[in-house]
Design a protein around this nucleic acid. Structure first.
Length: 974
RNA sequence: GCCCUCGUAGCCCAAUGGCAGAGGCAGAGGACUUAAAAUCCUCCAAGUGUGGGUUCGACCCCCACCGAGGGCACCA
């Protein structure tokens, strides 16, 4: 076939270009990744890659993300799961519209063309997507359900319109959500964002703030900690109190929010946000009104970027009005300033300069008094210029004097509530989600504005409200929606009263589309509903979500919100959409993000043409932990090519027939194979794909050696090894793997071959190196069977003169015969006796020791079973302990402990003998022959009858045998 | 300023508190070759950022510092 490219690829290997062409049609035919239909009995897995925006062809970032998602999806298919791994397009958005304006192409056509390009590239990249379920969000069949979702929220009061100061991007000529403003700049085009007072549509995500925060405990350990932290920061819950202050010459009091109600006596002035209605009202008609307007103009012209400079000097204006401190009746001067935000809390604060840095800065700038009310022992803030926020004793605070911070907060909250002056309150940084946009290429908001009925939802049977044709519309950004220009489209009759009315001309933020798209895949062709509840019950929640950390807040928070709303509507039975999240890193070049302007852009198509699909996929997966950035300068695709060739050559060397009985094969190669399959599988499940690849490479090396100079190519074990390589390799290098599978005499597709069954008896090594440590220092290494008994191992160890010598030098008396040392050793009081490692693990006298490959359940059994009432649901009883893994079984650990640590954890050994008059139940329990029950009885006895006078008393009280007692007599004292 | 994560051979990275090295890249030598490429074999290298602590034993746990990266940043 491709003779031209042969020169580039064939180095005693296979023709990559040819093989890539060869298998695609075969796979199209077999469709190995079509997910099961309702009657499928296999357990399900829903693996989802974040769907892309269709601008241009795929790039290196896509290549990494899809390679990673593919490993997971293909692995679960091999493991016999019914895997749904769908793909679609997030197809609405500004780039299409901007391209339309620039080149005059209909956004729909531009989008469709890009989707076609990307889809073809995904096929060539051998992504294991189930194409039967695909959709894109600009299809009316999708966005009608987007409109349906909007109406559901609207009818529940969760979608509403309000006028407020919003973020406005002057370049894109549209509003932005808070989440789309990064450091004062438009997320998309880096233009400084300005504030504009507009009436916009919002989703009431703040109603769900507590649940969005609290439900994160379900995600702990399953989502990157980083993302959870970012979401917590973003929601920004704080607790404090609302306190109402009387304002002179005003009938209504003003409520302020504070996190430090304990410092109420330290308030020395009062500040209102300069851009709030309250400030304008207070200034109205006063002598400072002129100055106030001037000040307001000045701060409005300051951009958000200026505002973000935290070291900016404080500015403000005295309004010549006063507030009355409710706790002591003091008159506080009222100031207007831009350091108080109008839309957080109530837009007004009490200022406590001694204990709040911002207030202190303002007080120093305006020469206002500072009163310390919490004595932290630090320097006086009015002198040091540093506010003290720490704990201390309350002073100058009337009834609060002498109390500690927490105590004072509780006390004052109670008092305020009793006197009707305030009460404990919570606040959030999170704002409602602004979802309307003044652009064309998005989902029309399905609302009709009627002069007499107000906002009326479009009846569900009239959905979708389709976008008017772009032709003939002026799409250029001009601050109002282009849809307003479609006169025929805008003017409709009110669905309620039938009188002339107008459609809402805004479109929805595209994050609305992606906030529920994962619910659509299970029933993507359903024309009667957004999603089939039954199908969603089958597939959701998503078992593994893969995508960039750039969506840590926006998309993931919105998706969680919408899921909770739908769950409240009883349309879903779960309240978190994504059980497990993997954030892949970025592909960078020499430490910097790739970009055309930087001149460090690596083009995916070039890389694929040079090295082939498999080598690029392998390089992406092998380069390091998936969440780390990949620096392409550190990546060696040609190294991947070499490895793939090595693996491929093996498949041609095997001379046995398919179906041969592996159990008769060479035992040492079989052990290597089963160890590799076991470890690689474990690594994939732990998302440590780079480690999984390393295990496959090891097996390739072992197989090569075995074929060349070991058991030879005819041995069944050689076939077993190479077949295992092909199957494992199919997760990352599908073309190579398929080619190998064929050369091994099998029918396609290797993707469906099934993950090799691990024979656990083959996981036990022939022999292990036991490391003998004395006082923690390695003294000797001896090769022994992993099945050796403790006793025999001790004898082996003591046969070495170096060991005897080391024991003598640390105070162990030898009496000529090694065996006698064993008997005397436990009596030595010097804590480290003889610590013998087995196969990298440890055996310590007094700790349960189990044979190699025991499971957690065996450990619990050895320790006498499980206490009543223990919650075992979080404990993986089937987990195999590593050879000689040192474990400590603690049946007294309470429920709710983190996974796998409730009963099994590393030994923390106490040094020296235990004082039985002070020992806890746990410490006594650890002694041989004393279980938890007995330990408890001993402690109770001690409480009733006073301390033991001799160690021997313990034996009498507990009634244990003297031989048992002798075992730990040396480890206790009084 | 606050919070989080990470510092292991020249490089990318492994290592349940128990032999510091699994794998790869780069490098050196050898076999094959007229030669080169490719292939195969062998070898090379750090004592885990620094200083303390806990432990019989620390890359791993704790504290401080240094360095890198990320998040938040007038949210009262």
């Amino acid at each position: 076939m491709s003779t031209d490219s042969t020169r580039d690829f064939v180095h005693e290997g296979y023709d990559v270009a040819y093989v890539q062409e060869k298998w695609l049609p075969v796979w199209d035919e077999l469709a190995p990744f079509r997910s099961g239909r309702p009657e499928d009995l296999r357990p399900k897995k829903y693996v989802l890659d974040m769907f892309p925006y269709p601008s241009g062809d795929l790039h290196m970032g896509h290549a990494e993300a899809y390679a990673l998602g593919d490993v997971i999806a293909r692995y679960w298919v091999q493991k016999g799961f019914n895997v749904m791994h769908p793909m679609g397009w997030d197809a609405f958005g500004l780039p299409a519209e901007n391209a339309a304006i620039k080149a005059g192409i209909d956004p729909a056509i531009w989008t469709d063309e890009n989707i076609a390009v990307q889809k073809a590239s995904m096929r060539r990249y051998a992504c294991s997507f189930d194409w039967d379920r695909t959709f894109n969000t600009c299809d009316p069949e999708f966005y009608r359900w987007n409109q349906w979702l909007f109406i559901q929220l609207f009818e529940r009061g969760l979608a509403y319109r309000k006028a407020s100061n919003v973020n406005w991007c002057p370049k894109d000529q549209t509003v932005l959500a808070n989440e789309q403003v990064i450091a004062g700049l438009c997320e998309r085009c880096d233009t400084p964002v300005v504030k504009k007072k507009l009436t916009q549509w919002y989703f009431k995500i703040t109603d769900y703030a507590d649940r969005l925060l609290d439900d994160m405990s379900q995600l702990e350990g399953q989502w990157p900690e980083k993302v959870l932290t970012m979401q917590r920061n973003w929601i920004g819950r704080s607790s404090g109190a609302n306190v109402s202050f009387t304002i002179e010459r005003r009938t209504e009091p003003v409520t302020i929010y504070t996190t430090r109600p304990d410092t109420l006596y330290g308030a020395t002035f009062f500040v209102v946000a300069a851009d709030s209605d309250l400030a304008a009202e207070l200034a109205l008609g006063s002598s400072v009104e002129g100055k106030f307007k001037e000040y307001l103009e000045k701060i409005k012209s300051a951009s958000d970027i200026d505002r973000l400079a935290t070291d900016r000097p404080k500015s403000g204006l005295f309004l010549e009005r006063y507030a009355i401190n409710p706790v002591n009746g003091e008159k506080l001067s009222i100031w207007a300033s831009d350091y108080v935000l109008a839309d957080y809390g109530t837009g007004a604060i009490m200022a406590v300069p001694a204990h709040d840095q911002r207030d202190l800065d303002f007080a120093r700038a305006m020469d206002l008094p500072v009163r310390v009310v919490v004595d932290t022992g630090e320097e006086d803030p009015s002198v040091s210029g540093v506010a003290t926020a720490g704990n201390g004793e309350l002073i100058n605070s009337g009834p609060l004097n002498g109390k500690a911070k927490d105590e004072a907060i509780a006390f004052i909250n109670e008092q305020l509530e009793r006197d009707g002056l305030g009460k404990a309150a919570r606040n959030y940084r999170l704002r409602d989600w602004l979802i309307s946009r003044q652009r064309y290429w998005g989902t029309p908001i399905p609302i009709i504005h009627c002069p007499s009925c107000g906002e009326v939802a479009v009846p569900l049977d009239q959905l979708p409200v389709k976008l008017p044709d772009a032709a003939g519309l002026d799409l250029k950004p001009k601050g109002t929606s282009p849809l307003g220009g479609a006169t025929d489209w805008v003017n409709v009759d009110c669905p309620k009263c039938g009188n002339p009315a107008k459609r809402d001309t805004d479109t929805m933020d595209t994050f609305v589309d992606s906030s529920w798209y994962f619910l659509r895949f299970p029933s993507s062709t359903d024309q009667t509903q957004a999603f089939s509840k039954e199908a969603v019950e089958t597939w959701l929640p998503v078992d593994q979500y893969v995508g960039g950390v750039t969506h840590a807040i926006l998309h993931l928070l919105y998706s969680r919100f919408v899921t909770k709303v739908l769950s409240d509507m009883d349309l879903l039975s779960f309240n978190e959409p994504f059980s497990r999240l993997l954030n892949q890193g970025m592909v960078v070049m020499e430490g910097a993000a790739m970009s055309k302007s930087r001149g460090n852009l690596v083009r995916l198509t070039d890389e694929l043409a040079t090295h082939g699909v498999d080598a690029i996929r392998l390089s992406m997966v092998f380069s390091g932990p998936p969440e780390d950035d990949i620096d392409w300068k550190d990546v060696s695709p040609s190294g991947s090519v070499k490895f793939l060739n090595r693996a491929w050559r093996l498949s041609g060397d095997i001379t046995s027939a398919p179906g041969v009985d592996f159990t008769t094969g060479d035992i040492s190669l079989r052990k290597a194979t089963h160890r590799a399959v076991h470890d690689a599988g474990f690594a994939v499940e732990s998302l440590r794909f780079n480690v999984a690849i390393a295990r496959i490479m090891e097996l390739v090396n072992a197989a090569r050696k075995a074929v060349d100079s070991g058991c030879g190519p005819t041995d069944p074990a050689a076939r077993e090894a190479v077949e295992a390589v092909a199957i494992m390799l199919s997760l990352v290098a599908p073309f190579t793997a398929e080619e190998m599978w064929e050369r091994l005499g099998h029918q396609p597709s290797v993707a469906l071959a099934g993950w090799p069954e691990v024979d656990e008896t083959l996981l036990i090594a022939d022999s292990v190196i036991a490391v003998v440590q004395i006082n923690g220092k390695i003294k000797e290494r001896i090769e022994v069977s992993p099945l050796i008994s403790d006793h025999d191992l001790e004898i082996e160890a003591l046969a070495h003169p170096t060991i005897i010598e080391a024991l003598v030098s640390c105070g162990v008396v030898t009496r000529g015969h090694p065996q006698q040392v064993i008997e005397t050793a436990p009596v030595i009081v010097a804590p480290p006796l003889l610590v013998v490692d087995v196969a990298g693990g440890v055996k310590v006298p007094g700790v349960y020791s189990l044979p190699a490959d025991s499971r957690v359940t065996d450990a619990i059994k050895a320790a006498g079973g499980i206490e009543k009432g223990m919650d075992m649901s979080e404990i993986n009883l089937a987990r195999i302990l590593r050879d000689g893994e040192q474990i400590y079984v603690d049946p007294l650990v309470a429920t709710n402990a983190p996974k796998n640590t409730a009963v099994v954890r590393s030994v923390k050994k106490k040094s020296g003998p235990i004082n039985i008059n002070r020992a806890s139940v746990k410490e006594l329990d650890a002694l041989p022959g004393i279980g938890p029950v007995l330990a408890e009885r001993i402690v109770k006895f001690r409480k009733v009858n006073g301390p033991f006078s001799l160690p021997e008393d313990l034996q009498k009280v507990s009634g244990i045998g003297s031989s048992k007692f002798a075992q730990f007599k040396s480890k206790i004292k009084v």
